[in-house]
Amino acid sequence: MSIETCLENFVIPIKSVIEHIDVKGQDVSLAAPIKLSGQLNISKLLAEQWINTGQESDETALQIGVDEAGRGPLLGSVNVAAAILPKAWSGLIEAQPLQHTLLSILTDSKKLSEKKRDRLYPLVQQHAIGYVVADIPAAVIDQVNILQATLLGMRLCTEVLLEVMVSQSATAINDATEASRHLQAQVLFDGNRCPELDYLKLATLGIEKSTIDCQAWVKGDARHTSIAAASILAKVSRDQTMYELDSQYPQYGIAQHKGYPTRVHMQAIDTHGVLPDHRRSFAPIRRALENK
Rank of each mutant, 00 (worst) to 15 (best):
G72I: 09
A268W: 14
L36H: 04
A88L: 12
L156V: 04
P250D: 03
P33L: 13
S57I: 10
Q126S: 11
E94D: 14
V164G: 04
V274S: 07
K24M: 13
V132P: 01
K111L: 15
K292P: 02
A138S: 15
Q99A: 10
R119P: 01
L152H: 04
S57F: 09
A176F: 10
D246E: 05
Q39N: 08
S16T: 06
E48Q: 12
H265V: 11
K110T: 08
D118T: 13
D27L: 14
Y252W: 14
Y121T: 07
I254D: 00
R223M: 12
V236E: 01
R193A: 15
E290F: 14
T158S: 14
G25D: 00
G91R: 00
L275V: 08
K116W: 06
E290T: 15
S169C: 13
L233Y: 04
Q143Y: 06
T177A: 13
Y131L: 06
Y121A: 04
A268N: 01
D270V: 09
A185W: 03
S29G: 05
Q184E: 09
S226P: 00
L75T: 03
V218R: 03
T241L: 13
A185E: 02
L106Y: 00
A230F: 12
G72F: 03
D246A: 14
I14D: 01
T158G: 00
L152P: 00
S281Q: 05
Q143A: 08
S169Q: 08
R181C: 11
K15L: 11
S169A: 14
V17E: 14
V274T: 09
L245R: 02
V28P: 02
A47F: 13
L92E: 07
S281V: 08
H182N: 08
A203R: 10
L162H: 01
I21N: 05
N79H: 12
W50Y: 15
L197H: 00
L197Y: 09
A134E: 02
L75D: 02
S231D: 05
T107G: 03
K24A: 15
A234R: 10
T241W: 05
T101A: 02
R287W: 13
K35Y: 11
E94P: 05
L40R: 02
Q256N: 14
Q96A: 11
V28M: 14
G191P: 07
A228P: 05
T101L: 09
S109P: 07
N79P: 02
D108N: 09
I141Q: 05
H20P: 01
A81E: 03
S37Q: 08
R286L: 11
G206W: 02
K35A: 10
S237N: 06
Q186G: 04
L183E: 01
P195F: 11
H272N: 07
N52A: 13
V133E: 00
T171I: 15
A229Q: 03
E208M: 12
S109H: 05
I93P: 02
E19H: 08
S43V: 10
L151A: 04
T271N: 09
D213T: 10
L75G: 00
R155W: 07
D22A: 12
L200V: 08
T171N: 13
L62R: 03
Y243Q: 06
N41I: 10
E244A: 12
M1T: 13
K235R: 14
T107H: 04
G153F: 14
V23M: 10
K87E: 05
A138I: 06
E114H: 06
E94T: 14
I173E: 03
